[in-house]
Design a protein around this nucleic acid. Structure first.
Lengths: 138, 138
DNA sequence: ATCTTCCTGCAACCCGGTTGCAAATGCAGA
DNA sequence: TCTGCATTTGCAACCGGGTTGCAGGAAGAT
């Protein structure tokens, strides 16, 4: 994602462009897997933890990223792929208990669940735990 | 759950019975919803946080409870209902963003997912977020 | 240039979870 | 019953992710 794509992304989501935000957005887009705050801290040495955190929070509020809680103890962030303001690109994630990485199973949509009367669903968090192909081969 | 049921439960799961463990097991069985460590701390004033924690860890290792990460920042515990040693009573949970309670949607089983070749699934965590009937009525 | 607002870094804090350690308890064998 | 060992427990301290208060700095408006 180059500078221009970034700005257009921000504009679509109503986020003002700043140098830090561009750096964070690029780091997110480069990641092949959902990343945690601490991973971003390591990757982006130029920005303070709190800055990254606030940027992520802002992105989250503007539906630019979505949040996955894989049960590893730290939350992970992933760029939304849907272009409209809503997270309709929810998919299942897989957390490997051996290498502790989280994978997007992008192909698999979250199954539709018919909830009991009265419940109103706004988002879903569906994480499978187990062993990834790479680790189970060993 | 009375004392005797407790002991039999422990025996089935290979857990030695101690006073503390009985107290924790009873607290879990009395809860209508999955409970967090801090909730148990409030409920069980006679046992130290670390004791409750260790008891829960032990229960988890012996498949006496299962763990739900509802994304609220603290993990919740729930007595397993299946009597064999394995967690085959997985079901969906609902986290209300207003009252911050977690509900078991016991009726709804976790849908079977066919994962890509190579992935080996050991457990699932499926949590819906939204507003519960009680809160949406207001 | 000045004012105001927003953005940022720093340091401190909060809280859930976890561990080391030593005292207490339980249990087996003499 | 006494002794020695293993397990359980409480206490205090720690850890790490997440979060916030504050003050300095940049950006935009008047």
């Amino acid at each position: 994602m180059d500078r221009q794509e970034c700005d257009s992304l921000f504009q679509r989501h109503g986020v003002k462009s700043t140098p830090n935000r561009i750096i964070v957005a690029e780091a997110l887009s480069e990641a092949s897997q959902p990343v945690s705050l601490s991973e971003l801290e390591e990757k982006i040495v130029s920005i303070d933890k709190s800055g990254i955190f606030r940027t992520l929070s802002l992105f989250k509020d503007h539906h630019l990223v979505h949040v996955i809680d894989d049960g590893s103890g730290s939350v992970r962030y992933e760029l939304c792929h849907s272009e409209d303001g809503h997270d309709d690109d929810q998919h299942i994630h897989f957390y490997c208990e051996v290498c502790r990485r989280t994978f997007c199973l992008s192909e698999i949509p979250v199954p539709e669940i018919s909830v009991p009367q009265g419940y109103e669903v706004t988002s879903t968090n569906f994480v499978l735990h187990g062993i990834c192909p790479e680790c189970s081969r060993k």
